[in-house]
């Protein structure tokens, strides 16, 4: 009997509902805690990012146009799909250095987070909308609307939960996102993109890149067609880069070291639109 050679997964990017390799053809090594080689991970380039922005931009309008209830259903579906792949996610987190208990907890929290934001999908608007008292014959009201295309620099230390913690509130609010996964622990993000691809999330709404943060940060922050950058981390130099580059098109630069389940996380990538409607005329 011959010995079977296991089929290894190729870790690729996720852009526009497809899994391309980096256009640059580059990869970087991912080794586990013991130094064993686990995978060649695609090393995304600024052109990959640009391509992702193009598809994210074209997907944004129809994603924001879906009913809030529908977006909630899709997020719920994401939770269901992660649940079905529990063992895979746990094993992968262990490869990236987590203990079994930590990995289990992280996957549980990831699913709970998705369900949490699925629930908020048609409720945060009520929480953050206002009717404004004005001294003229107008009915004035303000509602949150998605800011558009958001770039997310995901946390370095939390491969799965960290990503989902930031990603879910961005997309539930009708934004599309290009997420740069942790370059220290990139595997879970790509496996999570397989979940996205099978959960009725329209192509282009979530795009996930792997690559070096140091290489891509300035390009991400400077891109004129990105409306907001969410940076999960505490590196002062990185923040400086983002702030100076983000000023080019006055995009929102949102810095957050930790994120927990909260409707205010949704609000961070929303714009407030105020309408003045004449009355009594």
């Amino acid at each position: 009997m011959s010995t079977r050679v296991p089929v290894q997964k190729t870790y690729k990017l996720y852009i526009g509902g497809e899994f391309p390799r980096s256009e640059s053809g580059r990869t970087f090594d991912f080794n586990d805690a013991k130094g064993r080689h686990i995978a060649n991970v695609s090393r995304g380039s600024r052109k990959d990012f640009r391509n992702a922005v193009v598809v994210a931009r074209s997907a944004q309008k129809s994603w924001a146009g879906k009913s809030a209830y529908n977006r909630g259903q899709i997020l719920y579906r994401l939770g269901e799909m992660v649940e079905g792949r529990r063992d895979q996610f746990i094993a992968e987190l262990q490869q990236q250095g987590s203990s079994v208990a930590d990995a289990r907890r992280e996957v549980d929290d990831t699913i709970d987070t998705l369900i949490h934001y699925a629930g908020w999908s048609d409720k945060y608007q009520q929480l953050f909308s206002t009717v404004n008292p004005v001294a003229s014959p107008h009915f004035s009201f303000s509602v949150p609307e998605p800011t558009g295309v958001v770039a997310l620099i995901a946390p370095q230390d939390s491969a799965l939960l960290g990503l989902v913690n930031y990603l879910a509130p961005i997309i539930v609010g009708g934004n599309t996102v290009i997420a740069l996964a942790s370059d220290k622990k990139p595997l879970s993000a790509i496996t999570f993109s397989e979940v996205i691809a099978t959960s009725d999330v329209p192509a282009g709404v979530v795009n996930i890149l792997t690559g070096y943060r140091s290489e891509l940060l300035s390009q991400i922050a400077g891109h004129m067609d990105v409306n907001a950058v969410v940076y999960a981390g505490d590196n002062v130099e990185d923040r400086k880069t983002i702030q100076s580059q983000a000023s080019l098109n006055v995009k929102r630069a949102i810095f957050s070291e930790k994120q927990s389940q909260s409707p205010y996380a949704i609000l961070a990538t929303q714009e407030t639109k105020t309408t003045w409607h004449p009355i009594g005329l």
Binding site: R46, R50, V53, Q219, G222, H223, M224, D225, Q245, L248, N249
Partner: peptide, 9 residues
Amino acid sequence: TGVYQSSDY
């Protein structure tokens, strides 16, 4: 400019 552009501008 070295920066990718948006059709907004």
